[in-house]
Design a protein around this nucleic acid. Structure first.
Lengths: 249, 249
DNA sequence: TGATATAACTCGTCATTACAGGTTATTACT
DNA sequence: AGTAATAACCTGTAATGACGAGTTATATCA
């Protein structure tokens, strides 16, 4: 365009750049299942005429979706939905909701249990609490695109647990609440990972068969001062979800 | 270029696309420390005249380096070398033997298979090899204190595989051989973790019951230049071995 | 009908041009 | 000298045009 003063989308006051709008619209179509895995996506030229933009613009949108892992291209054939397992980067200390919503997935958590344990010797010790202090137990089932992916049991000192119990844990990330709302900076987490069979309760919550192999992650998250904050056991399906991490030498 | 028949690099018969050459040259400069962290990199226009290419080409090279995390850009200011890794922590990239012998455990590996695969389309692609190049498959059972803990299937380009096949893999760590003997510095590894049931073969090798839940770790190890070196699938017992790591915010 | 050549598509790569918006150094004015 | 305008950078976004190589459907010929 040499004298385009008014872009095509002038009528719709779209906030960001064009390629971002195309990227976001396509991502919604993909993660919502509007395009099925391995289904062929509209070709570049079709998107060009559909959105009335240049090829460079659709390619930028497509490129970002490709590096997000939502689609793959085959030269000469076309582009296809790659429904790779959604994954969480274990090397980043971030909560599930925080990680997934960055990738445009729909996340919600169902609270299936909330208990105050007056006496829990081993837990108080691991959480670095004075002996005899109460511990709060949080049981949540986490959903991605309406499918359950993990059953999390979290333990924290009741001074935090009672406050958290009042929060909207269904859609908000616990770590973000701790950090931004309560002003507790996070430091590091120690993880231990193994594989177990789903027991009857877990299997039902995750909607899988009993004795399906699942990941068990023990995660002890510490504040920046090094004090333990939350001890969690995450029981994760591995058919629709993956943990990934990158480590450096 | 309207009538460019002969591209600028006609004298040097560079194999791949222009942007790949620029990307690779810049990456070497960065990882070799030629540019220090937070140091300003040459601007786009400078790279344009240095390599005599168009802006779109240098931006493609730069974009890939940015998504690799080697540099970051600031609109209006320039590009800078990023300080390496938010995940420099206890999760180090080390081989099994290297890690365990540091802790005083007795380690040995049993080679249970060694195959040269002339055709393995997906593997060559993941390993970044030219199509049609052969791949070596290494199957080992790793023991800790005379007990099997993991069954590892490793794939590497046969240029490395044929050399390694002659080495003493029973007691020496593969990554140490690569690094110290072959002079191939290691960079990082990408891991993906899930849980599966032991099949008959794996169960026998690991001396566990069939259908015991085990960890499956996919590990793609890269050299310091970012090129993939080894793709491995580690099937780990979780009753006598645990995957532990510490991550920082 | 069957094999083959061609046309029509696909994505990959690259050059050129243009403008917007941020940052910084220079210049000019008070 | 101090401040404000400006010029000279920087990256971000976008349009247009071109050619290549791979794939697929079509049309043509034997």
């Amino acid at each position: 365009m040499t004298i385009p003063v008014v872009p095509n989308n002038a009528i719709h006051p779209v906030p960001g750049p064009l390629y971002a709008r195309i990227r976001d619209e396509l991502r919604v179509q993909i993660v919502s299942g509007n395009y099925q895995p391995h289904q062929k996506l509209p070709s570049e030229s079709e998107l060009i005429s559909r959105y009335e933009v240049s090829r460079i613009t659709v390619r930028q949108a497509l490129g970002e979706l490709e590096k997000e892992g939502l689609l793959f291209k085959v030269a000469g054939k076309g582009m296809f939905v790659s429904k790779p397992k959604p994954f969480q980067d274990l090397a980043r200390l971030q909560g599930f909701a925080e990680a997934m919503s960055q990738h445009g997935y729909e996340v919600y958590n169902r609270l299936v249990g909330l208990n105050f344990l007056p006496v829990a010797a081993e837990l108080t010790q691991r959480l670095g609490l004075a002996k005899g202090l109460p511990v709060t137990e949080l049981r949540r089932v986490r959903h991605l695109n309406r499918e359950p992916v993990s059953f999390d049991i979290s333990y924290l000192g009741s001074h935090l647990g009672e406050r958290l119990a009042k929060e909207d844990l269904a859609s908000r990330d616990m770590f973000l609440i701790l950090e931004n709302q309560y002003g507790i900076p996070l430091g590091f987490a120690d993880l231990a990972i193994d594989a177990v069979l789903a027991d009857a309760e877990t299997a039902e919550l995750l909607q899988i068969a009993k004795d399906t192999p699942i990941l068990r992650v023990e995660r002890l998250t510490h504040g920046r001062d090094g004090a333990p904050l939350v001890l969690e056991y995450l029981y994760c399906r591995t058919d629709n979800f993956q943990f990934r991490l990158r480590i450096n030498r």
